[in-house]
Amino acid sequence: MTYSVGIDSGSTTTKGVLLHQGAIVRRFMAPTPFRPAQAIEAAWDCLYDGLETRPFLTLTGYGRQLVDFADKQVTEISCHGLGARFLAPQTRAVIDIGGQDSKAIALDDDGNLVDFLMNDKCAAGTGRFLEVISRTLGASVEQLDEITRGVEPHPLTSMCTVFAESEAIGLRSAGVAPEAILAGIINAMARRSAHFISRLTSQGPLLFTGGVSHCGRFRELLSQHLGQPVATHEDAQYAGALGAALIGENLRKRR
């Protein structure tokens, strides 16, 4: 039986999937530790466990070069495009917002990569940014949808993580409700992401992937700023790992 494993070693989370005949049969997700190789090894052990034959292993993400037992190493841009098309075949554009970077990817009608943008130099607009501000205001990222539902966003002037945190504290001291500040943060991030996506050379049905895609309010505001629907998927956080596994599956078929 032919199996393929894809592992995405991200800056904050390590994801992995086991594919068999084009279907996901196992998933792995864990925080990326101080030594990312440990999470890669844990993912491999989990996904390979109990199989009679060794799966083809493809690594992607920041930590893809930290272990020596992979069959293939690939960049995350190509993986995220493939993974997005696997989850939603009509996808022509992808916005992936992870822990410490964001990516915008354009695909043609056949799913080939035609353009991409990547922001990995600044934490503003990433999952880490959202986590820091939420924690400053006494909330968790998991609570954001409930807390900000129906709340009018309070405008913010800064998207720098350090300055935005100080501004949030100042607004709270001035009596602005934390719910409104959090809604304002999400709105500012969504507006920034919409501008980021608009710089792609081609547009089309959009899939939102990465950890931040679980935030429904973010997706709602992003759709408003873009003026188009924004889709996601329950496996959206696995898009990079899925793409890596698909690449491995295709390579194995050729051998």
Rank of each mutant, 00 (worst) to 15 (best):
L82D: 04
F129P: 09
R92A: 10
S140W: 11
T91P: 03
F86C: 03
Q143D: 02
R35G: 09
K72C: 14
L87K: 02
R64G: 11
A88H: 15
G16D: 05
F28T: 00
H80W: 05
T136Q: 14
H80V: 13
A37E: 14
C46F: 14
L82Y: 10
Q73F: 13
P33E: 07
Q38H: 06
G127R: 03
L59F: 10
D96I: 10
E131Q: 09
S140C: 06
Q65V: 13
P31K: 02
T53L: 05
A70T: 03
K121S: 03
L87T: 09
T58N: 08
D45W: 04
I105T: 01
F129I: 10
P31L: 00
V17K: 04
D71S: 12
D120A: 12
D109H: 07
D109Y: 00
F86V: 11
Q38K: 14
G61L: 00
A70R: 05
W44D: 14
G16C: 12
F116M: 04
E146W: 11
I77L: 05
G81W: 02
F69S: 08
P31N: 00
T32Q: 13
A93P: 00
P89H: 08
G50C: 02
L51A: 10
T75K: 13
E52D: 15
L117I: 03
L66A: 10
P89K: 08
D145M: 06
V67K: 04
V74S: 12
T58A: 09
R128C: 12
K72T: 13
L107K: 03
L19H: 11
Y62T: 01
R26G: 07
L130A: 04
G50P: 02
T126F: 05
N119P: 07
V94N: 07
G81A: 00
D145N: 15
S140V: 04
A124G: 14
C122D: 05
Q143E: 15
I147S: 07
L51T: 05
D68W: 03
V17M: 08
R92H: 09
D96G: 08
S78P: 05
T148E: 14
Q38E: 06
N119E: 07
G61M: 03
N112L: 05
A39R: 12
Q21D: 15
D49G: 07
G127T: 12
I95S: 01
G83F: 06
Y62L: 00
E146K: 15
G50M: 01
A93V: 03
R27P: 12
F56W: 07
G111V: 00
G22E: 10
P89L: 01
L59D: 04
L113M: 01
A106T: 11
R135S: 08
Q21H: 14
N112P: 09
D101W: 01
G50L: 11
A70Q: 08
C46Q: 08
Y62I: 00
Q143M: 14
D145F: 07
H80A: 14
P36S: 00
W44Q: 13
G61V: 04
P55M: 11
L87H: 06
V151H: 13
S78T: 13
Q21I: 13
V141Y: 12
E41A: 00
P55S: 05
V25T: 15
V151T: 10
D110F: 12
Q90C: 09
T60F: 00
S134R: 12
